[in-house]
């Protein structure tokens, strides 16, 4: 485990805590895309199938449980919780995310490390995570102004991916066999999706103005 990887996981954890904090403190999920959260549940369930089969470390297992349970808790709040579900921007959150699921699954069937159930699910989760943020970015552009917590949420999600890319670069130079081409390609695509968001986030931070995304 290198520092980049740990920083990446901690940043990822922060994104989950930001969402839970926002929902718990404001009892509102306005500005949050339920579609993106549902995609994340699929990502974590498909990727952490090995939670009970191959044990890596206590840290690894604990973090997997945290990510799966928190992503399910967020979807539960946005769908079921009587107060929170009313604040969901149903009309704005219209991205047809099932195409992302179908596309990622098709890609996983074609490109995977081994054509086994577990490897196909793993590749599926990697591809799906790369595009899972799309409904959220579209929702932000639709709603124009971005409230602070949601802006920070997307920012930290992007930061977690940047740390993971640094982690892969570090591992590439320090370990012989390290060649996660699936993660590399999907990770680069995923981080690229954040590029324009980072740009507008930086501009708003520099001008100390509200984050405005071009519609």
């Amino acid at each position: 485990m290198n520092a980049f990887r740990l920083a990446g996981d901690m940043t990822h954890l922060i994104t989950v805590l930001i969402l839970l904090l926002k929902i718990y403190a404001t009892k509102s999920c306005s500005g949050i895309s339920l579609k993106t959260q549902e995609l994340y549940v699929m990502v974590f369930v498909a990727r952490y199938l090995d939670l009970f089969t191959n044990f890596i470390s206590v840290y690894n297992s604990v973090m997997k449980v945290v990510f799966v349970t928190s992503s399910i808790a967020i979807v539960w709040c946005m769908r079921i919780h009587p107060l929170v579900r009313r604040t969901y921007d149903k009309e704005q959150d219209t991205f047809r995310h099932y195409f992302l699921v179908a596309g990622s699954f098709g890609l996983a069937l074609l490109f995977n490390e081994n054509f086994t159930f577990r490897e196909v699910c793993w590749a599926f989760s990697i591809y799906l995570e790369a595009v899972a943020i799309l409904p959220q970015l579209v929702l932000l552009q639709r709603s124009g102004n971005v409230d602070n917590l949601t802006g920070q949420y997307v920012f930290f999600l992007g930061a977690y991916r940047v740390f993971y890319i640094l982690n892969w670069i570090y591992r590439y130079f320090t370990e012989k066999h390290f060649s996660r081409w699936i993660s590399w390609i999907a990770g680069l695509v995923q981080t690229a999706l954040y590029a324009d968001f980072f740009y507008y986030y930086f501009i708003s931070w520099k001008n100390n103005s509200k984050l405005q995304l071009p519609a």
Binding site: R5, D9, H12, D50, N54, I56, S57, N60, M63, K64, F67, E113, W122, Y164, N167, E175, K176, H177, F178, S179, R180, S183
Partner: peptide
């Protein structure tokens, strides 16, 4: 390091 890299990342 096993030849097949173990999925040790989250």
């Amino acid at each position: 390091n096993p030849s097949k890299d173990v999925k040790d990342e989250l």
